[in-house]
């Protein structure tokens, strides 16, 4: 059976409207459906023609506020970042307005030639992949489970997800830091007291693998609500009938998921996954706060590394260069995301 076409019609929110015909999003203002009212033809035509000219401008007017706001706030800082990365700006230049010397590609060659930088990049990639896989895996699993659990269980779980989502990073991280503490941490207490393992005084930070397990826990815990709730909503759009029919046709659980469920939730899944990649790649606060505001070098991730170069080594230019490199590294993902974005733009 071919169930790959997303069974779109279940767009519940605008309500019971049957949405006739393919939703051909491209609206051509001139060809208003003559159907309904039999209004006087000629003046209306003139009116619409007049509107067509205005219509050419209208989209620009509509994006203008957003565009202006983005440009006013972000465009110049962005350009400034690029300029700074080709200069050597330290505190003195920043404060006195003294012209900063131009150094060409020196910042970039310095960074790219620094062994530590590449260690940081690999570590960041690894951490990001692990976090994204865990977040998306658990999120998807929970979303599917939520469909199948008793109502009150689902309500309780949704409540917990919501509450977790609303905690400020600072607070959530402090709490996880206590959990992981060697002397008074709840993790060690539970492992020792309830599971009979000897974890008394165990320090989770000495070995960065264990340390990143703890940091990953905060990151994943903090991201699951968004992923689970979103995917749950996506799953509710999968038509029950199709699933049941597929099951009757002898498709196993995996088959049903592969041919019925996945095609429906795919766009949402991709979107959420891409955002997770971006967020987890730029993780900063969780590491910084978990390590008591002074992370050891083996806990350096890209976000921290660029921060450290900018503020602690007094080279705002290096910080700028690193963030531009980060953007380039992310642009692989970005291109994918963009294609999704544009493709969707085309489809209508």
């Amino acid at each position: 059976m071919k169930a790959a076409e997303p069974p779109v019609p279940g767009l519940r929110q605008p309500g019971e409207r049957p949405a006739p015909g393919p939703a051909d999003g491209v609206s051509v203002p001139g060809v208003a459906t003559p159907s309904s009212t039999g209004s006087t033809p000629s003046p209306a035509g003139a009116g619409i023609r007049g509107k067509r000219n205005a219509g050419a401008l209208l989209p620009y007017l509509l994006i203008a506020p957003a565009f202006v706001a983005i440009a006013a706030v972000f465009v110049w800082p962005l350009i400034k970042t690029v300029i700074m990365s080709f200069q050597d700006v330290g505190r003195r230049e920043l404060w006195t307005g003294d012209p900063a010397p131009w150094v060409g590609f020196e910042q970039f060659t310095n960074i790219l030639g620094d062994g530590e930088f590449w260690d940081v990049v690999w570590r960041t990639l690894l951490f990001m992949v692990a976090c994204v896989v865990a977040t998306m895996g658990i999120g998807l699993f929970l979303a599917q489970a939520m469909q199948r659990m008793t109502n009150w269980v689902r309500l309780a779980l949704t409540g917990a997800l919501v509450a977790a989502w609303s905690l400020p990073l600072l607070v959530a991280t402090s709490i996880f830091r206590w959990f992981a503490d060697s002397d008074y941490g709840v993790v060690n207490m539970v492992l020792t007291k309830y599971l009979g393992l000897d974890f008394r005084g165990h320090n989770w930070w000495l070995d960065p693998k264990q340390g990143f397990l703890m940091i990953g826990a905060v990151v994943v815990w903090g991201a699951i609500p968004f992923v689970a709730i979103t995917l749950y909503a996506a799953l509710t759009q999968v038509p029950k009938e199709l699933e049941e029919a597929a099951a009757l046709d002898g498709a196993g659980a995996a088959g049903v998921f592969r041919y019925v469920t996945w095609p429906v939730i795919k766009p949402v899944f991709q979107m959420v996954a891409t955002l997770s990649v971006i967020w987890d790649f730029n993780v900063f606060g969780q590491v910084f706060l978990m390590r008591g505001n002074k992370p050891e070098p083996e806990y350096n991730l890209l976000g921290l590394y660029s921060y450290e170069k900018a503020f602690e080594s007094n080279s705002f230019s290096q910080g700028a260069a690193i963030s531009l490199i980060t953007v380039l590294l992310l642009s692989g993902v970005a291109v994918y995301y963009l294609r999704q974005l544009l493709k969707i733009g085309e489809v209508e």
Binding site: S182, D183, G201, N203, W205, L206, G292
Partner: peptide, 8 residues
């Protein structure tokens, strides 16, 4: 206690 902490 944990010997690898700082004075916090």
């Amino acid at each position: 206690g944990d010997q690898t902490k700082d004075e916090q």
